[in-house]
């Protein structure tokens, strides 16, 4: 069993087993917006921006394309009024936390999302997990992690590891869709250099 045939936005697409819908679409040159996805990392499915409609045996449902495995005979739609509406709302919710994120701004323009729809509650981190996952999966340093959960969840640098490793790496900085990661690191650095040594 090697190749899988499916249809995305009316185009016949060939995928190999183990591919997600997102990978299959991108391999065929079709674009699906993503925020928390990163090619070098395990599928995560955190932001839900990449939802698509899947039709199988006459039934349509919404799935998260970056974690949904490509399967034979699926009919996939990457845009529809319903999908666009949902993406718009997701973006509006994210923008309430990170109003100045350039990446979110671009997507907001495309989907007509209103950054002021929800009351602003700037926490800056949108919990995409890119920094945490990159540090764990690619660098295997675990210098930054999440703490807490729900609305109080936040990233937290482990000072012992961060002070030793981060300065010469900083590979996660450009991954962050907001500027929070960098700000959090500068803060940790500042705190540690004032009360650690000196």
């Amino acid at each position: 069993m090697s190749e899988i045939q499916l249809e995305i936005d009316g185009t016949p697409v060939t995928a190999t087993p183990g591919m997600t819908l997102l990978e299959a679409a991108r391999a065929a040159g079709l674009s699906i917006p993503t925020l928390c996805h990163h090619e070098g990392l395990e599928p995560y499915g955190g932001c839900r921006l990449c939802i698509v409609e899947v039709e199988q045996r006459g039934r349509t449902r919404l799935v998260v394309s970056c974690v949904f495995p490509a399967a034979a005979d699926l009919v996939v739609r990457t845009r529809s009024p319903k999908i666009d509406r949902m993406r718009k709302t997701i973006l509006e919710l994210l923008l309430a936390h990170a109003p100045h994120s350039p990446r979110l701004g671009e997507l907001a323009a495309e989907y007509g999302a209103d950054p002021n729809r929800f009351e602003q509650e700037a926490a800056f981190c949108v919990h995409c997990g890119l920094c945490v996952r990159y540090c764990a999966e690619v660098k295997q340093l675990h210098a930054v992690g999440f703490i807490d959960r729900g609305i109080t969840k936040e990233i937290s640098f482990l000072p012992e590891i961060a002070l030793r490793e981060c300065n010469r790496c900083k590979e996660c900085f450009p991954l962050c869709p907001t500027s929070y990661l960098q700000a959090a690191f500068v803060l940790v650095e500042g705190l540690m250099s004032t009360n650690g040594r000196a």
């Binding site: 945490v132 675990h142 992690g145 999440f146 703490i147 807490d148 937290s156």
Partner: peptide, 12 residues
């Protein structure tokens, strides 16, 4: 287990 994970679980 990475300390970052232990810390996440302890606060979760």
């Amino acid at each position: 287990v990475p300390l970052a994970r232990v810390q996440h679980i302890a606060t979760f």
